[in-house]
Design a protein around this nucleic acid. Sequence first.
DNA 1: TTATAATATTAGAACCATTCTAAATTTAAA
DNA 2: TTTAAATTTAGAATGGTTCTAATATTATAA
Lengths: 134, 134
Amino acid sequence: MEEKINMLIEKGVVPTTQRLIVFQHLEESKTHPTADDIYKALKRRYPIFSRATVYNTLFIFKEAGIIQELTLDKREIHYDPIPSPHHHFYCKVCKEILNIAISCPVAKKREINGHKVEDVQSTFYGVCKRCLKH
Amino acid sequence: MEEKINMLIEKGVVPTTQRLIVFQHLEESKTHPTADDIYKALKRRYPIFSRATVYNTLFIFKEAGIIQELTLDKREIHYDPIPSPHHHFYCKVCKEILNIAISCPVAKKREINGHKVEDVQSTFYGVCKRCLKH
DNA sequence: TTATAATATTAGAACCATTCTAAATTTAAA
DNA sequence: TTTAAATTTAGAATGGTTCTAATATTATAA
Ligand SMILES: [Mn+2]
Ligand SMILES: [Mn+2]
Ligand SMILES: [Zn+2]
Ligand SMILES: [Zn+2]
């Protein structure tokens, strides 16, 4: 816990109780939850939790470079506890988002055609291995 | 106009007046408009045009493989008259979306880790050349 | 420590892109 | 022409996200 507090302080984020809870939840979840996924999960254990706090916290974390926003779903935003760019696979059937470990020169670019690159998102859309079987 | 009609028929889309107008507008616009961009532009010239028709038409076109949906903006969906996958640059300052011609093995994959790939989207986020100057 | 200012949290309202609905119109088939 | 199917339309409904203003917490000053 002490390490988590220091981690947030290092990134310039005031380590409030709520932020530590959200941070821990993101670390534990191996998925790419939406703000509402997080809200619902935390609301069960901490009924006082507010939806606005989840949104505020995710915004703060994103600004601090602790997490990254994934804008690959047309419905809602997903959050990724891994802030560095990597590829994803989005299953149109079960809606699951999987990390894809693939070496791609594109993911490391800091500049392209004179434009300054700050983030990269590469997403494959289709039907996942599991859904193909069913 | 005759060729546009045939193009739609070939793709299995009934070539109604409204669909031809939307199709022509997409072809002429070199940008990546949102549904509302298209609606507002067409509403000026054809005041009877309905917002629902724009959404319906874009859905039909996407299903037919005439256009592609870009889910790179967290606010709204953008539409691309070029249906084949290519990279984009999204400027966080002026919100412009630019095509990036770059050879990338990722854009051609039809399969990855056993998952069936149907679409690919690769987007760079940052500050465009023009905005860097200002 | 106590007082004061700044920041964070909360519940719920507001916003707005998108989807839905049901009636009217157009197109296709019989 | 008649009938059925598909399309268009205006506006309502939906739902994820943002905003608001009151309260609570944390940081700073005295
Ligand atoms: Mn990921
Ligand atoms: Mn494009
Ligand atoms: Zn799946
Ligand atoms: Zn720009």
